[in-house]
Amino acid sequence: MEKTGCPRLHATVPWHWQVKNHAGNWCNILVIQAKELERAYQDPAIDKIKVSPMQRKHVTNYGCEIIKLLGKGWCEANFTAMTMKSSDGSQTFELRRLSTPSSSVSDSEHATPYEWFFQDRKKWIPMENSQDIETFYQVESSVFMTFKQNKYEYTLDFESMTRQNLDTEKQTAIRRRPKKRPELQPRELKMRSSRKAKLPPSWEATDNTQVSLLAPLSSGCTEFLEIGKRMADFFHKVKDVEIVRVQNPTLFLPLKNKVTEITKRRKRKPLVLRLFHWPRQDQVDTICRDNFSPRLQHPAITYEYGRGTYFVRSVSRYSDTCGPGKGERGVVFVADVLLDGYVEGDNTMNSPPKIPGSTNTYGTTVDSQHMPTVYVKFSKRDYCPRYVVHFTA
């Protein structure tokens, strides 16, 4: 929080994020959440994100103050309005980003490089003359900049953040964003190479002291689009979809190691399905940290195929009983689930029965032996959360 004395913010990275409290003072957002904001802000396609919950563990007094201000749940940051909502949605605070001077006017090694983009349909395209635009933006007092590119003449309006083609009179939106910097993956946060090699290449580097990292996905990235295809029918019925990648090595690696063990033993790789799981709405953070369990899944699930953790092939299964009411926010998980033999289950099963003629048990019970759509699991090494999907019904 702001204090009297030195007017500068002292930080270990060349940027930081703050919100303004009711007294008009600017309060620093915790480092982990600030990094989430910075990563998202670098992508011009992202208008707003859900920032992961702020934990009270291992924080200073100022950390407790920001948690008291914003709450302990997910907070929504809006980069267009530069605002941040409290976790319960009842309050909206002004949001700002601080950084070192632009590299267009500073030779410092810590200066911040920027890039300019224009919107073409739904895509954000880098401008060829970004450096010239940034210099003009920093040096000149005018809110208008006119330049020629190819055979057209354009005017930029820095007040409305638009670009107009003076020949066709077509107007498009523009955005200024910091370029990606290595400070978001500092040396002390890099994973050991042997461990990192076992993790998905799309994962961002995490602090070894962190249990998990929740990384918001851009709506145009490959992962978001792939999940969209799997949930296409469901997505047509909902809106305001946001997807967060769950990066938790303590949950991902046990499943991966079990798959490796089975592959070595049987000389063939077992099937791993990507399924859906309906949770209790207030247990999302616990699942991301500790994994799924029967006590954390939605109370509408009645254990008709066994008293384990339920996963479904189609997200629409149980959506009527587990989904939110019209206009309300809801959440569903995308999970990786090991399928290593299954049998039809019933509500008396606390664990899968033995395989006939063997001392081993089935790993899964299902709703139908021939065409299963519901899978019930009983071992935490057989599954892990991969994505959290937030939506409005």
Results as ranks from 00 to 15, higher is better:
T309N: 06
T135I: 13
N25I: 00
S160R: 13
R176V: 09
I227P: 02
V51A: 05
V13E: 10
Y152C: 13
Q171L: 13
T359C: 13
S103W: 06
P182M: 12
I133E: 04
K170C: 12
P201T: 04
P126S: 07
R96F: 04
D233S: 10
Q131Y: 12
P126Q: 03
V13C: 12
L217P: 06
S160G: 05
H10C: 07
M84C: 06
K148G: 12
D290C: 08
S103M: 10
R329A: 12
L166T: 06
G363E: 09
E128R: 12
E38M: 10
T348W: 04
E153V: 15
E76C: 14
C27E: 00
P270W: 08
T83M: 02
K85Y: 03
R176H: 10
Q18D: 01
V244I: 14
P356W: 04
G325I: 04
Y362F: 11
T302K: 15
L156Q: 05
T250N: 15
M161N: 10
L255S: 09
N129M: 11
Y41Q: 05
P7W: 04
Y318E: 03
E2N: 00
C75I: 02
P182W: 11
K20D: 00
M54P: 01
F136D: 02
V31S: 14
I262W: 01
Y310P: 04
Y362Q: 01
K380G: 14
T373R: 14
Y303N: 10
F378W: 02
T155N: 06
V246Y: 03
S194V: 15
A215I: 07
P178D: 08
C384S: 08
D207S: 13
F311S: 11
R187G: 11
K196A: 14
I49R: 04
S141T: 15
Q149F: 13
Q131F: 13
P7Q: 07
A23V: 07
S293H: 08
P53R: 05
L275E: 08
E140T: 11
V211S: 14
Y303W: 10
K20T: 00
Y114C: 06
E128V: 13
Y318I: 00
S218C: 12
S106W: 09
Y375H: 07
S52R: 03
L98A: 03
Q369T: 14
N257S: 15
L296M: 08
